[in-house]
Design a protein around this nucleic acid. Structure first.
Lengths: 129, 129
DNA sequence: CGCAAAGTAAGACGACGTGTCTGAATTTGC
DNA sequence: GCAAATTCAGACACGTCGTCTTACTTTGCG
């Protein structure tokens, strides 16, 4: 399915930061000048995001208020899956090993990961999977 | 910097598979019909890849032979960094924890990761970092 | 009510990227 | 020296993206 573009991402970020918001508020936050043109731009971006199923809206007085239906985590997920699809035959595990191997991780990160893995391991052993 | 597009990636894949190759060979591999038009298409894609610094060429008789200067791993790296830049403030570690947490990993993958992390840990301890 | 203001919807636009192709210029093997 | 192979430069259609203008609809409120 379609992805989120740069300008659309800016709108999403604003919505992740605080939702729901109306077009007016968004255009004022995103562009310092919240004129009519900018509002229309934001409106169009919201339209496209809605077409893609990434935001929803609800009436509030005479205007709509928008909220994201796609969390930042879910978008990360999508992007990573896209990388995996194009470069790793769809499998995500090569990405992980690649990241762990190639990059300097802070000691805290290493600790956290080891914890996660141990949990995963334990849970599996318990379930017999 | 610029990224690699779909058609360009197909060319890169062919070069990763076997290098160096001439335009003729590539166009025959990528399109079943290796006519003049397709050769020119491949040529243009190679031009653009060369502009971006992802392939190099060397003369061989009257033609050039091309080889990739960007490995698959390096491209994966780029893509992951792009995701991190846009969605994680440039840091890669959130991606790792995200992947480990969210996805079913095969037991073998878990084992491999634990090994990697342990190595990393040991190396650090030894160096006093 | 009735109307001005606020908001929405629809479409056009220029700019850009992408994949493709045509035609001319250049090289080169024999 | 020439014909064939190869490269090069540019044009093309198509789609996407961000933006804006315009017309239509709703609605709060005097």
């Amino acid at each position: 399915m379609k992805d989120v573009t740069h300008a659309e991402l800016a709108v999403l970020e604003a919505l992740w930061d605080h939702a729901p918001q109306a077009v007016r508020e968004l255009s004022e936050r995103l562009y310092d000048t919240g004129g009519t043109a900018e509002q229309a731009t934001v409106q169009k971006l919201l339209d496209r995001l809605r077409d893609k199923g990434f935001v929803a809206r609800e009436r509030d007085g005479r205007a709509y208020r928008f909220r994201p239906t796609l969390a930042r985590d879910a978008l990360i997920e999508r992007r990573l899956q896209a990388v995996a699809d194009q470069l790793c035959g769809g499998s995500l595990s090569p990405l992980i090993t690649h990241l762990v191997r190639g990059r300097r991780l802070k000691p805290a990160d290493v600790k956290e990961l080891q914890g996660l893995l141990e949990d995963l391991d334990r849970r599996r052993r318990r379930k017999g999977r």
